[in-house]
């Protein structure tokens, strides 16, 4: 059971309170009608799945209910950073220890 820090509640809470939301920073095209089939397929189905730092969405669904983003190391499961939805991905160099 991971402890996850919710940036809105500013508190660490057990994983059970959260729901995973897939890769972060996959923005929905502003006007989907103008997007090509290929680009739309990329948006729908293609995800990064890295070994290492992964920017991903979480929702504190059984807490404040807010969506936020996190940088998690997929090897160690360590959360390197959590940040509010809409904020840019933190520079990985900054967050390295």
């Amino acid at each position: 059971m991971l402890l996850i820090h919710c940036p809105y509640c500013d508190a660490a809470r057990p994983e059970l309170e959260f729901r995973y939301g897939g890769e972060a920073h996959v923005a929905r095209p502003a006007d989907p009608a103008t997007v090509s089939d290929e680009a739309w397929a990329q948006y729908l189905y293609f995800r990064a799945n890295p070994r290492g730092l992964h920017a991903e969405r979480w929702r504190h669904i059984h807490g404040c209910g807010r969506f936020f983003n996190a940088l998690r190391d997929t090897v160690s499961d360590r959360f390197v950073a959590v940040y509010e939805a809409g904020a840019p991905r933190p520079d990985a160099a900054e967050t390295k220890r």
Partner: peptide, 10 residues
Amino acid sequence: HHMEDYLQTE
């Protein structure tokens, strides 16, 4: 959850 997702993030 689906509605909240779009409302909050898109």
